[in-house]
């Protein structure tokens, strides 16, 4: 709504907590990406869907990190879209992997709500969306 700009929290996208999140996202993209890359290179035929999904998830984490790290509305929208995809992805794949374990014969980043990664895949998009909501740009800034 039409709050005066001075009343808005001093947070701006691309600074402060957003930078912390960007660092964590970047690290997670590296961790998930390296593992997925290794799995695809050595045993892709065992579970092509699962490994391709892990690689896709890693790519989305990387894009989210870039969106979170940079100021501007374009980056903001980019981060918002990526965090939303991650949240939907981890909830959807998590639920499917619990109900139909045979759908993903090998663990993905998002299997069982990210249990193999200490539930970080579940927590990260929630934190990301909370932060983006707090740091949302003013409509007429």
């Amino acid at each position: 709504m039409a709050e005066p700009s001075v009343a808005r929290a001093p947070w701006r996208a691309g600074s402060g907590p957003g930078r912390v999140l960007a660092v964590v996202y970047a690290f997670f993209a590296l961790a998930a990406g390296a593992r997925a890359g290794w799995q695809i290179a050595t045993r892709f035929e065992e579970a092509p869907t699962a490994y391709a999904l892990s690689a896709l998830a890693a790519a989305i984490y990387l894009v989210a990190a870039i969106g979170l790290a940079r100021p501007g509305t374009g980056s903001y929208t980019l981060a918002m879209v990526c965090c939303t995809i991650e949240l939907v992805g981890v909830l959807a794949v998590g639920t499917v992997s619990v109900l139909l374990p045979e759908a993903f014969p090998r663990a993905t980043v998002w299997s069982d709500y990210g249990i193999g990664y200490g539930f970080v895949p579940l927590v990260l998009p929630v934190l990301g969306l909370l932060w983006l909501w707090r740091a949302r740009p003013l409509r007429h800034a």
Partner: peptide
């Protein structure tokens, strides 16, 4: 963590260093 934390001159720079150390 030191590099990225040092150039964020707020409490969040310290947070970056803490997270890095936990990894």
């Amino acid at each position: 963590a030191a590099l990225l934390g040092w150039f964020e001159r707020t409490r969040w720079g310290s947070t970056i260093m803490a997270v890095g150390c936990l990894v």
